Computed example of a mutant assay.
Amino acid sequence: MSKFIIGLTGGIGSGKTTVSDMFANLDIDIIDADIAARIVVMPGSKALIAIEAYFGSDFITEMGELNRTKLRSQIFSNLDDKAWLNNLLHPLIREEILTQISKSTSSYCVLVAPLLIENGLQKLVNRVLVINIDEAHQVARTAARDPSSVAEIKRIIASQMSSEQRLSFADDIINNQDLSLDNIRQQVTKLDQKYRTLLLNNER
């Protein structure tokens, strides 16, 4: 694939949306794996029909949409269910991501994926950008925006790749420990300049 792609990842509550919004403000196209995951389970989709048949109608809302909170709780407590769901959705999500990348018109694009490395999506990107944050900040940030309990948030963190493992794949790192938006924006601006320079060098 000729498109220059940055893979943006980090644990739950690390600030991926904040960072990707800043790249978007620099006119960079954002491809979000979570949005791709929502697209493939839209009402009436084959994937949603399969999920209802497997898990039951309790996992579908009155509006005919996937009850993502209920499903997330289910798969984090049942590895067999998680494996079944992954086998169903991962190929569909990957296909949707590739479609969106092919439509990108910015100088480079950013693929935002919480499980970029765990799901092998780093193979699609040229560089891996990891947002680094400690667990205490992850829990506090997630609890402030999400109805999940602290115990469930900690289970999600435990199920994800550790910070040390994730950082071992990083080509670039954004430090989000102090939660200063100005500081993060400065880091994003420097990285944007770096990526544009890399692109210029590759085109020569």
Score class of each variant (00 low, 15 high):
M1N: 10
M1G: 13
S2A: 11
F4C: 06
F4G: 00
L8C: 07
L8R: 04
G11H: 04
G13I: 01
G13Y: 04
G15T: 08
T17L: 06
V19P: 01
V19D: 02
D21G: 03
F23C: 06
D27V: 00
I28C: 07
I28P: 05
I30G: 06
I31V: 15
D32N: 14
D34F: 10
A37G: 04
R38D: 00
I49N: 08
A50E: 15
A53L: 04
Y54L: 02
S57Q: 14
T61V: 11
E62W: 02
M63V: 01
G64R: 13
N67D: 15
S73Q: 14
S73T: 07
Q74M: 15
N78P: 06
L79R: 13
L79W: 01
D81S: 15
K82L: 12
A83W: 01
L85P: 01
I93N: 02
R94E: 10
E95S: 12
L98R: 11
S104M: 04
T105S: 13
C109K: 02
L111M: 09
V112D: 06
A113D: 08
A113N: 08
A113C: 14
A113Q: 05
L115F: 06
G120L: 06
G120M: 05
L121R: 09
Q122L: 03
N126W: 04
L129S: 02
N132H: 11
D134M: 07
A140N: 12
S148V: 10
S148L: 15
E152F: 15
I153L: 10
I153F: 09
R155N: 12
I157Q: 11
A158R: 11
S159D: 07
Q160S: 07
Q160A: 09
Q160V: 10
E164R: 12
E164A: 13
Q165D: 13
R166C: 01
D172V: 05
N175L: 11
N176K: 09
Q177T: 11
D178G: 01
D178Y: 09
L179Y: 08
L181M: 12
D182L: 11
I184C: 10
Q187C: 12
D192K: 00
Q193I: 10
R196Q: 15
R196S: 08
L198W: 10
N202L: 12
E203C: 10
R204N: 14
